[in-house]
Design a protein around this nucleic acid. Sequence first.
DNA 1: TGCCTTTATTTAACATGTTAAATTGTTATT
DNA 2: AATAACAATTTAACATGTTAAATAAAGGCA
Lengths: 154, 154
Amino acid sequence: MNENAKKAGMAPDALLPRNTKRSLPIALLRAREAVMESFRPMLAAHDVTEQQWRVIRILGEQGVIDASEMADRAFILAPSLTRIIRTLEERGLIHKRKDHKDGRRVLLEITPAGIDIIYKVMPESRVIYERLEQRYGHDKLELLLDMLNELANG
Amino acid sequence: MNENAKKAGMAPDALLPRNTKRSLPIALLRAREAVMESFRPMLAAHDVTEQQWRVIRILGEQGVIDASEMADRAFILAPSLTRIIRTLEERGLIHKRKDHKDGRRVLLEITPAGIDIIYKVMPESRVIYERLEQRYGHDKLELLLDMLNELANG
DNA sequence: TGCCTTTATTTAACATGTTAAATTGTTATT
DNA sequence: AATAACAATTTAACATGTTAAATAAAGGCA
């Protein structure tokens, strides 16, 4: 296999195994999965997906916002958000209406049923997050967040 | 909105806005997206998705392996892997056969056409990764990888 | 050997990611 | 006012993520 690499004029280690733990994309994926593993069962018990929870929680915090701002804050692409909004509205957890100032925009608002879900999920979410923070270490977690944000913005 | 929180016996800041940059799951998501943004156009130009590329590259490195080991290494769930294997085989980039020692297992092997893709993609991939490493800093990147792996395993 | 349990893979069903194109409403310009 | 350029959302089409169930082959044991 490595003879082929030489013939093709590649570095001789072009096909040598690289540890996937040293691959940044996969390391980020694994870390995220490990974190979500501890949240997902709780969210599933309340019948919301991770993305649906982000939308509901942000509406609880922000009041009325339009779809674009939601996409930004929740880091969800517009086509996904369209579908998520549809299912959340069908379930009566959010309200959707046109912006009269700008007919292109869709304004979102949480319903009492949506607030109920926040009241149920948020305390459990906090417990899970605090447990994670204790296990990993508060300062190290803050450092990690700084480094991740620099990677995302730099 | 915060009166509701008090009535429900929650912490008074239960519904206050939290910066999504300080949310670990979203920070991991954003960081990963920022990284993949620099790889995706190149992969798309070679008509492979990120996951397809992981499968192809690992087969180039490892020779013959079964589907379970591939799922482990590429960090892809079994149902996704089934579909990816199907499309890669239809495109003639990999081979698939039953293991005669254990009829449950599926053995995977790369084809010459698959190796061709590795020869085309790998050099460009290295360039992109090195550019990233230079911008972010080698030592910081190593530290980040260590911290991510600890988060994933601890 | 025959049955039970376990393991590897696949299928199914639904949710989201991803890109491009279509739709609809605004804004700017003439 | 008519039209071109732009912006927000949706639709479409395909790929992957996620969980549960089905299928098929091995392995263990009475």
